[in-house]
Design a protein around this nucleic acid. Sequence first.
DNA 1: GAAAGAAATTAACGCGCGTAAAGAAAATTG
DNA 2: CAATTTTCTTTACGCGCGTTAATTTCTTTC
Lengths: 357, 357
Amino acid sequence: MGRAVPTGEPKARIMSEHKIRNMEEFAALSGLSRPTVSKYFNDPASVRPKTRERIEAALERYDFRPNIFAVNQNRSLTKNVGIVVPYLADPFFAEIARVIELRCIEAGYSPTLYSAHGESRLENEILSGLTALKPAGVFLAPLGRISDRAAIERFCRDVPTVLFDSNIEDMGEAFVGSDNFSFVQQTVDYLCRTGAPPAFFEMRNPANPNANKRRHAYLKIMEDAGLEPHVISVEGQGWGFEEIGRQGAHDLFASGELKTDTILCSNDRLAIGLLAACYERGLRVGRGEGCALRVASHDDHPFSRFTCPALTTAAHEYEAVADKCMETLFSLIESGGRFETRTETLIPARLILRASA
Amino acid sequence: MGRAVPTGEPKARIMSEHKIRNMEEFAALSGLSRPTVSKYFNDPASVRPKTRERIEAALERYDFRPNIFAVNQNRSLTKNVGIVVPYLADPFFAEIARVIELRCIEAGYSPTLYSAHGESRLENEILSGLTALKPAGVFLAPLGRISDRAAIERFCRDVPTVLFDSNIEDMGEAFVGSDNFSFVQQTVDYLCRTGAPPAFFEMRNPANPNANKRRHAYLKIMEDAGLEPHVISVEGQGWGFEEIGRQGAHDLFASGELKTDTILCSNDRLAIGLLAACYERGLRVGRGEGCALRVASHDDHPFSRFTCPALTTAAHEYEAVADKCMETLFSLIESGGRFETRTETLIPARLILRASA
DNA sequence: GAAAGAAATTAACGCGCGTAAAGAAAATTG
DNA sequence: CAATTTTCTTTACGCGCGTTAATTTCTTTC
């Protein structure tokens, strides 16, 4: 496991040579037998250094890669790793997937990225296709509420799976994600410490379970602080969160029902929409003089640094989540794909103060 | 080609049955011979309707999928399609990749998404790995300037490739992308028609060739209009365009060298950074009264609708690009992977007027 | 219902590689 | 140097499926 297998990087080749068809031929050109070369590709350290040198010299000259389909045919497990996210065009998922993917590559695996594009039908097809690839493991951020539980359960029985981002009870061998309570606690604490307690701005029917956890956290924290909670649930379907936030904010401001000058958004994408609405209405957002509203949020979306004003938010520890994901997968693979008990790792948030609150 | 192969969607299975090991076993359970079943999987229409029904009934019951590695081992071509982009965490690429991927799925292919993460080393590894997958075709948006030309050229010799987004001369069988000249023409025309001629705001050493084409287009258009061009090139490396734009804008404003009230950004991500800088400096952007600056840009980045103010931009026709990509790949596959002559399709921009200019 | 045509079956080979067993060759040890 | 251990070679089988050729069985047609 985790051995450094050569990956056929571009090198100066001898072009006059015809293309190598198979390992037999390559072995002959290396002056070795096929089983030895096969051993090398399974673990370069398993052959004598001198033999290894000969193979690697031949590799320089002839640009040969074992046929990936033939290699995997008899294997019960491959070096494939699947990374499945609900919607890759959401920069948050693009970013977390990016970090995990890079970690996988570093560890010598072949990660493949999949997006369910917000549809449970596609999520199912991805999982069923992934099963056929016999991956060593899969990182799955499920769609959430609209996921096909039965399909995911079936998948997790066949493939060692680490859930991330969105937890689904008892699904997969482990869960790695952010601690939603910590997110909300930090933002609410900060906002209360520096001004009025926040109202909570969210989508009414979020597909993602984290949204519900954040609402519950908000309610609990406000209650514990003896403060009256104020939840604003806006309507909207699909993955256009910014537009939903923008529309919802316009409706909110028009209704005149907002009783505070501090809004905590469930996530940054809603906040981005809300800030756009504020700008459109000439509402100045920030903590300074002449500001009508403070806005904070959660996720540290890649774009939250560049909103106007820049968004105060509770950040995911992207690197830490990715590291923990990898670590979990490694021990999962070492345990033969199953854990005795399902572990859940919740990584706390890091508060990032910017100009919006 | 393009046949509707069943994809093993979740169905009610008879759980008591043991798992099918191979096609032989599945054929027996269907009451048919393996070659017939094999024929079916290659083309469901190639067997008698009655036979087809029997297989599909068995498929309902037993949840069998041909071993993907064994299937592809002897094939010189698979139904795999690769989609390679330079940086998937850039929402522009995430969006165009999303649309192309969905089109591929609709067409019955198995698309796989790859991101070079901004590194030519990874781009090379993706291509060399992709070659091994014997894909029917590949959509490649190369890194651009830092791409390893020789590696890409070698890849294109082995695999039918359609370049998109970034053109590299004579590389691949075809290119599909947006018409940078049209982008700049529309924005410059609009800006000149409604106010002062724009200065052009760009990165000094853009990796992406489109940036150079846009600068040239700007210079040409200004020249033809008898106007003096003014190019502002800001420093910066990597993929953090927003931050580069923000820093560059601050430097620009601090220097006092800006001689116009109209800025045309090379792309939306730079513009997002520039708008953030404007906000931070209290510069009001827009075309209305009391605005210090007009800002327009190119790409119709998914967030350009939500900047403050919303960004006037020349939009890619995402759908049209994706459609043309698919169309090109289809005819490429039908032509056996090679075109007589390399075609270049440039799709004009669509101007989107918003509040920023 | 017989002849012609279509579709399925049987049998067999090949793809490229993993892997195991047995023996030969090389490296290591005392 | 001989004895031992390690590594490599030879030989051979198996994986699951594509594919072909020769037959057999089923459909269609008149």
